[in-house]
Design a binder for these strands. Sequence first.
DNA 1: GTCTATAACACGATAGAC
DNA 2: GTCTATCGTGTTATAGAC
Lengths: 189, 189
Amino acid sequence: MKPETRKDEIIKTAAKLFKEKGYSAVTMRDLATAMGMKAASLYNHISSKQEILKEIIISLAEEFTQSMEVINSSNASSLDKLSQIIALHVKITTNNTSGMASLNNDWMHLEDQLAYYLKLRNNYETIFLNIIEEGISASEIKNLNPETIMFSMLSTLRSLYLWIPKKEALNANDLANSLSNILIQGINK
Amino acid sequence: MKPETRKDEIIKTAAKLFKEKGYSAVTMRDLATAMGMKAASLYNHISSKQEILKEIIISLAEEFTQSMEVINSSNASSLDKLSQIIALHVKITTNNTSGMASLNNDWMHLEDQLAYYLKLRNNYETIFLNIIEEGISASEIKNLNPETIMFSMLSTLRSLYLWIPKKEALNANDLANSLSNILIQGINK
DNA sequence: GTCTATAACACGATAGAC
DNA sequence: GTCTATCGTGTTATAGAC
C-alpha cells in the first residue's frame, strides 16, 4: 500500500466539502480551514482548485469505464452483466462516497478535462444500453424501451452516494443483492 | 390565467441557468445577460439572488407535499398510490424541468428557508415510506426493505429532470405508465 | 425600469519571509 | 511546508441620473 500523501488528504477533504455544498460554493479558504492550514499553504501540494476537481472526477470515471469494459467482454448473460454493474456501483460508491457526489454534480465545472469526461461517460452509457438491448433480443429482459430501463437503473445507481452513508449497517454484498432484486424483479408481489 | 410578470421571467431564466451550472456558479451578471439587461436592473424586480432560489424551490416543495397528502388520503391501494406518485413526479417535472434541477441540487444553498424545506421533504418521504409499508402489510408489495424500495423509486423520480428534456417525443402519460411498469413490475421477463 | 458608477467584500492565486 | 501580506479580479448589492 502506498502511504497517503498530503495531496491525497487535500483531495479527500475537498471531496467531502464538495459533496456538502458543491465545487463552486467551496472556497480554498474553506478547504484550508478543514485541513487546519492557511489557503496559501495548499498551493505547495496542488496547483489549482481545478486540479483537485480533475483528480476526483477523472480517476472515478476511468475506473467505471475500465470495469464496464471488463464486465461487457465476459460471456455472462445480460441479466448477470446488469447485476455485475449494480455491484460495481455499490463497491465504488462505498469506497468513495464523496467523490461520487462530485462525479455526479460537479462534472460541468471541469475545464480542460470536460470533453474527456464526456467521452468516458458516453462510452459507459453506450455499453450499458447495448447490454440491455442484447437482453431484450435474447428474451431475458422485457421488451420495454431500453433507454427508459437504463435511465431508471442509472438514476438509482448514481444516487447511491446519497444513501449509502445513512445505511452503514448494510454491507456492500447485501445491498447489491437487494438492489438487483428490486431493479430487475420489481416490487409487485 | 395571470400574465407572466417580469419577476416570473427572471425566476424562470434563473432556474434554467441554475440547472446548467448550479446556483453558486451563476452570477447576477450571467442572469442579467440572459435577460438582456444589466445586473443592477434585476434588483427592480427581485430583492436578492437568494430570493430567486427560494421562489424556485419552496413553491415546488409545497406542491409536492400538498399533492402527496391528497394521494395518501384516498382509499386507493398502495400500488395505485405509488403509480399516482410516479405520475405526479412526471407531471411536475414536465412542467418545470429547470426548477426540479434546483430543487434537487441547490436546496442546501437556501438560507432562511432551509429548515422549512427540510421539514417539507421529510414529511414527503415519511408519507412515501408509509405507503410502501402498508403495501407490504397488505401483501401487495414484496417483503423487501421499505427504505431500499423508496430509495430506488425516489432516485429515478428525482432524476427525471435530466431525462425528460431529451425525450420530448414521449408524452407524460406514456412515460408515467412505462415507469410504473418498470419500477413496480421489474424488467425480468 | 434601465442605466452607469461604485461600495464593500470574497475569490483564486502568488511572493517572499521564516 | 507553512506563514503573512497582497495582487488582481469577480461578487452581490446600492445610489442616483435619466
